[in-house]
Simulated scan of single mutants.
Amino acid sequence: MKYLVTGTAGFIGFYVARKLCELGHEVVGLDNLNSYYIQKLKHDRLEQLKSYSNLQFVQMDLADRADIAQLFQTEKFQRVIHLAAQAGVRYSLENPMAYIDSNLVGMATILEGCRHNEVEHLVYASSSSVYGMNSKMPYSTKDAVDHPVSLYAATKKANELLAHSYSHLYKLPTTGLRFFTVNGPWGRPDMAAWKFTQAILEGKPINVFNHGELQRDFTDIEDILEGIIRIQDVIPKGKEGFSNDDPGRSSAPYRVYNIGNNQPVKLMDFINAIEKACGKEALKNYLPMQAGDVYATYADVDDLMKDVGFKPKIKIDETMNRFVGWYRNWC
């Protein structure tokens, strides 16, 4: 099978590309290697992939319509796993146009490439951020997500809408995955696990927002990887005569799933797991809620469990032990 994996130098994309190579597939990995965070980390991830002869890396910007179109026409991908995006809720307050170019224009170029080249399945990254300030827990794909509280969330909801239109108009099978907070080795420097670990090891204070009264559906990267690999084989068919009263399903070949741990963790328990892994207590700076943030995330993953047998297994203590061990070695 021939795959395009976008965001190959990114956290999740790196794991996905590596796994597909290990399974014997032909992979073209794409990334623009932007400077949103430490470029050395991106290059080191790519270095880990160099040993795979069945991976070809292409440095390219998703917003480059002509180049993306040519790539699709030349390579004739059978499946696409689209993970590249401008990430980060708070950065979207500072640099909104980066999200428009990468997350909206980039999604459109991928959809057009799939449409014109008979791609059999597009799996793409959405986000738990689309749930905004929804108070109903756990978050379900059956819930309305019409009130995003960040531009990042708005672009991810827009991705789902764009995907549905292509599924409906061109019968392109698309599957969106609403990722909840993902942690593990090779994670991003803008994530809490990295920031807290760095500060604790350096004896600097950590910022604890909303005075610690937050919960997150932290999920280990290995569990996330298993879900992605399984779902790409489940190609949506659509359901004739479907009433479209379930936002996660459609009469078109379109699906949206939550992919998370289904076990929300209190922020203070998360910090405690990092403290244990570091062997050192954190200096804590308690602050009010941040703009664009949400109080809790909690994934209903019943549909994914039913369709692919996805059931997260790895606990937060194990995840943080592995992350801190990797961080000490990498830094």
Rank of each mutant, 00 (worst) to 15 (best):
H211I: 03
V123T: 03
C278I: 02
S243E: 11
A69D: 08
V27T: 02
I228W: 12
K157T: 06
D307T: 14
I235F: 12
E222G: 08
N95P: 07
V324G: 05
N54H: 01
T141R: 05
Q232S: 13
G132H: 13
V28P: 06
G187K: 06
E222V: 14
G176I: 09
R216S: 13
T175Y: 08
Q215P: 10
Q198G: 04
R328P: 08
G13A: 03
D217L: 00
S243G: 06
T174M: 05
S127H: 13
R65E: 08
C114S: 13
D64K: 06
Y254D: 10
T155Y: 06
G132W: 14
D293S: 09
V324P: 07
D307I: 14
S126Q: 02
D217C: 00
G13N: 01
P312W: 09
V182F: 05
F242Q: 03
D64Y: 09
N117M: 00
S51G: 03
N244K: 08
E213T: 11
K315S: 10
G187C: 04
L46P: 11
Q232C: 11
N134C: 07
V119G: 09
T6I: 02
A273V: 06
I229S: 08
L62Q: 11
A252Q: 02
A125I: 13
I274H: 03
A192F: 15
C21W: 08
N285C: 15
I110V: 06
Q263E: 13
W326R: 00
C114H: 07
V58E: 14
S250T: 01
K19N: 01
V89C: 03
S140H: 14
L225F: 05
D245L: 13
